[in-house]
Amino acid sequence: MGTHNDAVDLSLMDDVFREYEGQRGALIPILQKAQEKYGWLPPEVLNLIAKKLGIPVSKVFGVATFYAQFYLERRGRHILRLCDGTACHVRGTPILLTALEEHYQLEPGETTEDGELTVELVYCLGSCALAPVAVLDGEVLGRLRQNMLLRTLKKRIDLAKPA
């Protein structure tokens, strides 16, 4: 996967189109494969799929936005899901958010410029006893404090230059 500012490499889709050539109703599997390759569904790819399948962009967009599985915004290579359920909220999620904003200029829903990290705010991960809780790439991080979160991020993610 390229870095965030790279142009989308449309040639990645060649194999996908070959695999589904001539198949009816292949739009959803093609979108799934595309998301596997890019991590999200860039507009260029949606356009290309429409062109290759000979269907309108409006249809591709309508389908891609209907299903919860598809992301139409770029997500980072690493996903940090920060719980802002009540328990976590009162136990310091806002402070963690402030830390992320200070160090990575990230607000919830945003991705770092190098495309490494996306921060998402979720409502209750069901681990309130460990509040505040975050899930980094599927791994639960409990009882988080600012420096702990930043340390973990720094260690785990090869961010270009955390300030």
């Binding site: 507009p43 949606l46 309108p56 962009v57 409006s58 967009f61 309508g62 936005t65 209907f66």
Partner: peptide, 17 residues
């Protein structure tokens, strides 16, 4: 040109993408 995007109460009439 037109289609629906999103779903449920969020359903929106959109042109293209």
């Amino acid at each position: 040109v037109w289609n629906f995007a999103y779903r449920g109460f969020q359903t929106k009439l959109v042109a293209g993408a």
